[in-house]
Amino acid sequence: MSSLPNPPAGFTDPDVEDVTYVYAVGRDTPALHGLAARLPGVDGRPLRPVGGGGLCALVSAVPADTFSEGGLTAQMEDLDRLEAVARAHHAVVDAAFAETSVLPMRLATVYLDDARVADMLVRQRSEFQELLGRLEGQVELGVKVYADPRAVAAPEPSAGASAGAGAGRAYLRQRRAQQHSSQDAYRTASALAARAAQVAESHATARAVHRPQQGQLASRPGVNVANEAYLVPREHTERLRQELSTLADGAPGVSVEVTGPWAPYSFATALAAHDTDGGGAR
């Protein structure tokens, strides 16, 4: 699901204190209503269900000024605040997904009020119902491949290398060996990423390719050379995880990280978006 491209009309109206934050959409069932009664949302605000077209959205109130266009920009630039909002958002989605099939909404999806959420559910009923049917009984697994040349042991200078010209030649040989080790690690990681895709697609029903993660987003040392997500029938999850987790055995400087199972964040959009470059997977 995509959030609103811009805050709705009247979003910055000073008379509007709260707006409606949407976490997930599912079929209108007692399970979602019961969840809304016992689980908090962002900033501990209570959840509530909003129905329309046979569907149910889990929502909560959030401050209009904080979630206006300017307020959202400030929150996204504050990593601690962004993490707090993301944790609350994902906690609701994961709890809902444990109860029934749901479509996760993007972080900070907001509407002016509940009436507009209900109208959205009615207008997009056919799309939502089709997606819910397609994702029934399936989960998302994330697969990341890393190259870390530093993990490859560098050759030690020969014991006979002495000061002067001999030491200089030994240093240059060591530097060339390190460069070759680095190149080998990246080549191996690229080949392993292709192999991981083959293994995953033998079980998966859909694939999403995301941008490699960098800096603080990367969860392991080295360079993230592949970052993908797969939609997998729940009963295939453990087998696929085991097959992927052993791919890097015996490949120094390369590692494979498998995350999930998650709610299908990468696949709760139109099919045309499944294989496009997007934001990072969980």
Rank of each mutant, 00 (worst) to 15 (best):
L4V: 08
P7E: 02
L4K: 03
R45S: 15
E17L: 13
R27P: 02
P8V: 02
P46W: 02
R27S: 12
G44C: 09
E17D: 14
D15V: 12
Y21W: 03
P8M: 06
N6R: 15
F11H: 14
L4F: 00
T12M: 09
P8G: 13
V42D: 12
G53P: 03
G34E: 15
L32D: 03
L4D: 06
A24E: 02
A9I: 13
L4C: 08
D15Q: 14
V22F: 01
A36F: 03
P14W: 04
P5F: 00
L4Q: 14
P46R: 09
V19S: 09
P5E: 06
G52I: 08
Y21P: 05
R45N: 15
R38C: 09
D28H: 05
V19P: 04
P46E: 08
V22L: 14
G53Y: 00
V50P: 07
T29A: 10
V25R: 01
G52P: 07
N6W: 13
V42E: 10
T20N: 09
P40S: 13
R27E: 12
V42P: 08
G53W: 00
V50D: 09
V25F: 00
P5I: 00
D28N: 10
F11C: 11
A31N: 09
D15T: 15
A24W: 01
D13Y: 07
G51V: 10
A24K: 05
G44I: 09
L35K: 00
D43G: 10
G54H: 00
G51A: 15
D43W: 04
A24I: 03
V50G: 07
A36C: 13
D18L: 14
P5T: 06
A9L: 13
A31D: 15
L47V: 11
D43R: 11
P40R: 11
P8W: 12
E17R: 13
P40I: 10
P49R: 05
L39V: 15
V42R: 07
D28I: 03
G44P: 06
T29R: 13
T12I: 07
P7W: 00
H33K: 11
G10I: 02
V16M: 10
N6D: 12
D43C: 05
L35M: 01
G44A: 11
P14Y: 10
T20I: 12
P40N: 12
V19G: 07
V19T: 10
A9P: 08
G53K: 01
V42C: 12
G51R: 10
H33F: 01
V25W: 02
D13V: 08
G51H: 04
R27D: 11
R45F: 08
D43E: 13
